[in-house]
Design a binder for these strands. Sequence first.
DNA 1: AGGGTGGTGTTGACATGTCAACAGTGGATC
DNA 2: GATCCACTGTTGACATGTCAACACCACCCT
Lengths: 146, 146
Amino acid sequence: MSTVDPGEATKLWLLWKRAYEMVRAAVIADMTAASGLSEAELSVLVHLHESGGVLRQNALAAALGWDRTRLSHLLTRMEKRDYIARGKVANGVEVTLRPAGRRTIDASVPALSAATRRHLLDRLGPDGTNALKDIVERLLSSEDGR
Amino acid sequence: MSTVDPGEATKLWLLWKRAYEMVRAAVIADMTAASGLSEAELSVLVHLHESGGVLRQNALAAALGWDRTRLSHLLTRMEKRDYIARGKVANGVEVTLRPAGRRTIDASVPALSAATRRHLLDRLGPDGTNALKDIVERLLSSEDGR
DNA sequence: AGGGTGGTGTTGACATGTCAACAGTGGATC
DNA sequence: GATCCACTGTTGACATGTCAACACCACCCT
């Protein structure tokens, strides 16, 4: 037999991807319909908001687990739409949530909440939700190799 | 209070995303280093392979849960590299795994297996792995809204 | 002062994904 | 058999992400 069997590990990997992407697509569709925000933009706004509206660009990238470049490009786009502003600071750049951004996020968080509940929590049930929480924590706490 | 609290559901959503993307990045990095294949290309090859090397383009898109357009573009690229071939058939297009594709996949599946084990299974432990399996199945079986 | 050096952010070229419009094809239905 | 219709796939414009190279700056060191 010259061909390789994907094996258990790979199968779980593929299924996980499939499930994640399915839920993600559903949530994003709902959310986007309600706010016109892309997933990435929403993440930025949420994190900014949770941090009081101001963050070092650096810290933002870390909080999101993103690449510097990606964030830079996205912020450039968001700046043009006046969601955020950038200003030079000590050693780096400070990102500030602007009124338009705040308004948009206020409008879309409820939609996101509802979408998550509908597409994730309701499908999992209370015990499934707890199990997922557990799994996520385990994964995030083992963030060794970065 | 004019600002909105993200709430429980949203928090779980953000954490899940974070965990998924972290593991994904690690797995892909390992896998790409070993094979030069992108994640999407690998998915296509794996599914093709599991189906005996031939599939309707249509069925492939469904199996992957992808958009027609995306698959079309990707297949065009993969065709140029001779990983696959396309041929007209009854009502649609048939995709065939070519030797170069088969060779590449044979070379990268072991790497993928190892990467999944290292970054996912080992971090979760046996019980965590089972819990994840359970969750994934629950989500996939509720694939109503498509 | 004169150089390193590490950390931060930007830029431009390129790869990839998304969206909307289109083209072909194989039945239904009259 | 003509017309309509749903299904399948392609195309091109555009949005987004990735990569490598660069610029800037604070700090250290001598």
